[in-house]
Each structure stands twice: as structure tokens, then as C-alpha cells.
Nucleic acid binder design. Structure first.
Lengths: 247, 247
DNA sequence: AGGTGTAGTTAGCGA
DNA sequence: TCGCTAAGTACACCT
């Protein structure tokens, strides 16, 4: 990993064209040559970047070249209109496309390289899969007397998240999302339409279950006769079994 | 911006729980306290992070505390099983939720702080909005004699990208995507279904326009009677008006 | 390798 | 602010 702190300007050309005016920024160049340019604000997304696989070419800017650049490049003026002289240029080019990120360095505050080695990687634990698992365990959340048929119930157009049978013996298809949007309702619609063609299953009720459901999705779901069920993750997690947290 | 190069382990607790085993990494702490942890690989997404608004608390680990931690914390062993002694702990806590990112530092290679100031920001040029703008300007790309009704034509279920009228006087709803997938076809389907209920508009044709269209989406679109239109961005950009690039 | 669906998505825009 | 949708999305999974 190479870490550069420098005033710079940058230009990206690829799917879109974007440019960064003259300012002080942090530039990371990783072992795979991928390049990230950060400012003080914003979330984890860099201002500009190049994804691997890519190559980095670097060259010093000669004095006469710098003069020439000043004549054609307008990004070398800071917010106050002051002009600056480029000293070095990084050309980061994508290997499989013509995407290119050109970073022009002016004043370099620091430029260090360190080898981080390979990372053992992130270990995750618990998102949508857990919602499905918990609801399967606590299937009576869809109604007293309900029984689980199976999770990931296979159909020709993909697996239904949960199939169950309610107290009246009616089949129930459940679509689970962390956030329920219109897409999810469409998905549930396709499943129910298909399942209802099977005389052994019909009628099949649909339940749209999510931690949050957008108003438009709720209207669409109800319009199509689906029940909406809000899932409380913490509640489900707490109910999951007789924990050691009984004290 | 504070830049730390150090061996560390980390733990995140929030929407999910995730942990990073002992390894050497780069840690950025931005002016808004947001924190990013990077390894040598992966795209621009950090291994782990905390988004602003958040607070950072830092404390040295006393020798006896370190011994205690070693007894309960299993992440202080490296890939070779060697144990390490924590020296410092960063607790990055979200301001509006109980999300917390705990970074345990072991050996610190460097720890520098620099003020980047406010960034003038990224200037973009050319994404979906531009595709829409260009197609609106060059509406005859959907057929000779076509006229534009309006961009972002409002309906109860959201705006149609472009409404137009073809040479025969038939209304045309156009859905524009950079890459056309099945979702886009579903979207166009909903719009056309709704618009066709209006006797003042019906019949309404649908056109699915994108720079690229997935084979499955194309089949689905054609199955639903929609025309598929490939948009050539460079071509549209070149046609946009009488440029100075005539030479 | 290409398609599909999720993301601790993030970012931008309009109501 | 809420809600929706695109993103130079990234990333995991599956065919």
C-alpha cells in the first residue's frame, strides 16, 4: 500500500467523465494497483478511484512540460484562483477497458509505501438469512396454528423464501426482505401466480414480510391481496430460544 | 485526516456483527470522525468502517488490562497462531444508533494527522440523466416523425422517463436505463398498464431504451410487446447540436 | 464467465 | 425529511 498526501487534481474517463479540481487529498494505491482518492468528508466511497485490474504509470513533469500544461489545463488553479505547478503525474489505466484515471500531483506532503500482506478477511454474522431462519423457527408470527413447510421452497422460477400452512390449512408463500420495496411485491406476485396454477396447492396466500416496507410497496401488496408483516429483528433474536440470558 | 498503519483487529456491531482478525492494515479517520479500515485487496469498499456522524474514543491499554484481554479476546492471534499484546483501543460509536466499531491496535508503524481542508468536490458529466436528456432532444431516434411530450412524465406510481407521440399519433412511454435488466422491463410494464387504463392516452406503446440490454430482459420486453432500443451515448453526444468540433 | 439479488449499501433528486 | 432510484455501484452466489 502506497499512501500519498498531496495537493492534486484528477480526471477520470470511462463510463462517465469526471474531474477533481486542485485540492489537498489522500491517495491510496493498493497492491493490485487499484487507486483511491479521499477527502475529509463523505462516506466510505472515494471521490474518485480506479478498480483493479489496472496499471499505474508515473512520471515527473519537466519544467517546460509544466508550463505547457498550465497553458491547457485549467484544473491547476485552487479555490482562490491561484495557479500551481504540476510536479508528477500518475496514470492509472484499467486493464480490460479504456477507463483511465489521471492524477496530477503538485505539492507532495508525504509519500510512503508499506506492505500489508494478505488479509485474513472479514467474518460476517447475520443479515437477511437470519431473518428467514428466525421466521421459520417462529412461524406462528404469521398467525397462530401456522406450520412450516420449508425454507427456500423450490419452484421453476426460483425458491420461495418460506412456504407454510396456516391454521385453516391454506398454503402460504412468504417473501422476506430486509427492506420491502416494489420489487419484492413483484417477486411475491410471480411466485403466487405460479403456485396458484397448481391445483394441489391452490389457493396460496401471499405474505410480504420485512423489517421495513415502503408505503408504495405496501399499497401494491395490499392491492394484490397480500398481507404485510413487519419483522422486528431484535424481538425475533430475543425469542429465538431459551438463552443463557435468563438470569 | 488521520492515517494509521498498524497491526490491528476490529469488531463491528450494528446491523450485523463482523470481526477482523489480527493483521496489518491502513486505518483512515476523517475530519467527521468516520473511520475506514483497508487491506491491500478489494475494491474501494473498506473491510470495515463507521459512517459519520460518530465519535471516536481512544485509550492506551495498560499492561494488566492487556493480560486480561488476552485471556478473553481470541482475535489477538495472527495467522500463525502467535499471540500479540494490544497497545491501544479505538472505539468509534455511531451518534444516532448503537452501532460501534472497536479497533484494537497492536504494533503501530505510523500514525500521522494532516488537515485536507474542504474539498471542492467531484464534477460529473454523463450518466443516465444525460441519456434521458439526449434522447429527449433527439426523440426521432425512436422513429421518424416522433414528438416529445415531456421528460419525467408524472404518474401515480412514479415518473415515466419520457413520454412521446409517434408519427401515427400513438402515445409512447419510454423507460431509459444505462443497462437494461429485467427490473427495467417490469417497471415499463407497470407504467404501460397504468397509462393504458386512461382512455385519453390508450393505446400506449412501450419502448425499452438502454446502452446495453441483457438477453433475458430483451426476451421479456419483446414478449410484452415492447420495442427495444439501443442507445449509443457517444453517437448521441456527437449529434447533440452544431458543436465547435466541425473543423 | 455471465446473470441475479443483496448491501452495515452510498449518493442524488424530488415531493 | 422522507421516499425512491441510480451507481464508474461492490460483492456473493449460482448456473
Amino acid at each position: 500500500m502506497r499512501i500519498i498526501v498531496a495537493t492534486c487534481s484528477a480526471e477520470y474517463s470511462g463510463r462517465l467523465n469526471a474531474r477533481l479540481p486542485y485540492a489537498k487529498r489522500v491517495i491510496l494505491i493498493k497492491a493490485d494497483n487499484s487507486c483511491l482518492i479521499f477527502s475529509e468528508l463523505g462516506s466510505y466511497k472515494p471521490l474518485n478511484w480506479m478498480a483493479a485490474p489496472c496499471t499505474v504509470k508515473e512520471h515527473e513533469v519537466e519544467a517546460d512540460e509544466a508550463v505547457h500544461m498550465n497553458a491547457i489545463d485549467v484544473d491547476d488553479t485552487d479555490a482562490a484562483g491561484e495557479e500551481h505547478v504540476p510536479t508528477r503525474i500518475l496514470e492509472v489505466a484499467a486493464a480490460k477497458s479504456s477507463d483511465i484515471l489521471t492524477v496530477t500531483l503538485y505539492s507532495v506532503e508525504s509519500d510512503t509505501t508499506t506492505d500489508l500482506g494478505t488479509d485474513p478477511g472479514l467474518i460476517k454474522d447475520g443479515v437477511e438469512d437470519h431473518l428467514q431462519r428466525y421466521l421459520a423457527e417462529q412461524i406462528e408470527r404469521i398467525g397462530k396454528g401456522a406450520r412450516l413447510v420449508r425454507r427456500e421452497y423450490p419452484t421453476a422460477i426460483g425458491p420461495v423464501d418460506i412456504m407454510a400452512i396456516d391454521a385453516e390449512g391454506t398454503n402460504v408463500a412468504i417473501e422476506i426482505k430486509r427492506h420491502g420495496g416494489i420489487d419484492g411485491v413483484e417477486q411475491l406476485t410471480r411466485y403466487c401466480k405460479l403456485l396458484n396454477r397448481d391445483p394441489l396447492l391452490a389457493p396460496v396466500r401471499g405474505i410480504f414480510a420485512a423489517q421495513t416496507i415502503s408505503p408504495q410497496a405496501r399499497v401494491l401488496a395490499q392491492d394484490r391481496g397480500f398481507e404485510c408483516l413487519i419483522l422486528d429483528y431484535e424481538d425475533m433474536k430475543g425469542t429465538k430460544s431459551d438463552d443463557i440470558t435468563l438470569f
